[in-house]
């Protein structure tokens, strides 16, 4: 009897989450998947199933190119963000006194409180020819002429990294503060130096935090439209920009849906690879 009641209670608690996932994830995905097999002909939607949009994806080099660009940018952003976030999280968890950690965390997440669009335009002003970096280089005599760092892939990466370093710092910090100090003491007792202790004890134990943050970074970055659109200057197209071109210019939702499904597939493959490699099911 108690088992039956516990099972019902479990389902009751699970139902909101299941409904939420069904309504806001599975249903939109199903609709998008269905759309991806339809076609846009002029102003009309042709509701007969075909693989035309997927064939077009492989036929047009710019579609495949934009996916490759997206993957390249996302990998660079994820790697750079992890490399910057880990030391930051380490300093926060290990070097900043407990009473200051809360304040330090608030400072770390302050950029999240600003509008994403405003933040991207702010970076555009900082990186452009009349921006503070160019002016500084001119003032100290490193360059004779104004220099622009905006409107290219580097600017897009900077805009992304600024945002995702904070996200990763939080996930890694949460992992680091959970590690009992006794682990390091035990390693030291057994003769391990700080580097060995980090490589063999701390890093493996914080890998789940890194991977969760890195995967979130990957997903959010590869699907982002705003940052490359504002900071990239259309020097190259990323997949979300190509999707938007289909919608804003031609209302071609079927083609945009096909591109979204391909993006979803890439993300799924990355997730499965991460999960298998790191056995994320134990996180």
């Amino acid at each position: 009897m108690q088992g039956q009641s516990g099972k019902s209670r479990g389902w009751a608690l699970l139902t909101p989450a299941l409904l939420w996932t069904l309504l806001f994830f599975m249903m939109p995905l199903l609709i998008m998947g269905t759309y991806s097999f339809w076609e846009r002909a002029g102003m009309k939607l042709v509701r007969s199933a075909s693989l035309a949009n997927y064939e077009k994806f492989f036929d047009k080099t710019y579609f495949v190119g934009s996916l490759v660009n997206s993957i390249e940018v996302t990998v660079i952003v994820t790697v750079v963000s992890v490399l910057l976030a880990y030391p930051l999280a380490w300093i926060l968890a290990e070097r900043v006194p407990r009473r200051w950690q809360r304040m330090a965390l608030i400072l770390a997440i302050l950029p999240f409180w600003t509008s994403y669009v405003v933040r991207s335009y702010s970076w555009l002003l900082v990186l452009s020819e009349g921006g503070i970096i160019s002016n500084f280089l001119l003032d100290v005599g490193i360059t004779a002429d104004p220099v622009s760092f905006a409107n290219n892939r580097g600017a897009t990466v900077i805009g992304f990294v600024h945002f995702f370093v904070m996200l990763l710092t939080l996930t890694i910090y949460a992992n680091l503060v959970q590690l009992p100090p006794s682990y390091r003491k035990a390693a030291a007792d057994l003769g391990a130096g700080p580097v060995q202790s980090f490589v063999h004890i701390i890093l493996p134990l914080t890998l789940p935090g890194i991977m969760v943050g890195a995967f979130l970074t990957f997903v959010l970055c590869i699907g982002d439209y705003i940052t490359p659109q504002i900071l990239g200057g259309n020097r190259e197209l990323l997949l979300p920009q190509t999707m938007m071109l289909q919608i804003s210019r031609r209302s071609d939702f079927p083609m945009a849906s096909a591109l979204a499904m391909i993006l979803m597939l890439v993300i799924s493959v990355v997730y499965i690879a991460c999960a298998r490699w790191l056995k994320l099911d134990r996180v």
Binding site: Y121, L124, L125, S128, E129, G130, G131, P146, S148, A150, N151, Q229, I230, G233
Partner: peptide
């Protein structure tokens, strides 16, 4: 917005 910003900022 981006193109006029480029002109306004000297980019």
């Amino acid at each position: 917005v981006s193109s006029t910003t480029a002109l306004a900022t000297g980019e």
